[in-house]
Amino acid sequence: MNMKIIIAGIIIVAALVFGAISFVDTNVEYTDFQSAASTHKKVQVKGAWLRDRDASFDGTKSQFSFYMKDDNGKEVRVVLDGAKPNNFELAEAIVVKGRYQDGYFHASDILTKCPSKYEADPASVKKTL
């Protein structure tokens, strides 16, 4: 019985250590472009799409590039692996996940946040009167 408890204990501790290591390993920190530039780790940055700057899709590389301003106001070119995401125009905020390199942010993933559209706001109620 004691043996069983020891074995179970070892397994649980091993599992927890394994989980903790994986957690730290894969944790993608929220940051801004400033500190993204100083690290080589994968990070995520929240900001807004700069609509007045060039945004284009490169069909040969299958990359979508656009300009984004983070919450601190730093503007950076973002190159996303993939096409312009659905709902991109609607997004009031976007989150890009990736690495900063050679003067631009190389994003592997993007999240678009469009709550305002489906949130009740006074401007939209006036439109439907």
Binding site: S22, D25, T26, N27, V28, E29, Q44, K97
Partner: peptide
């Protein structure tokens, strides 16, 4: 400061 794990975490574990 909140941050999320990458999907790799789930696959790995």
């Amino acid at each position: 400061k909140s941050s999320a794990v990458d999907t790799a975490f789930y696959v790995k574990t």
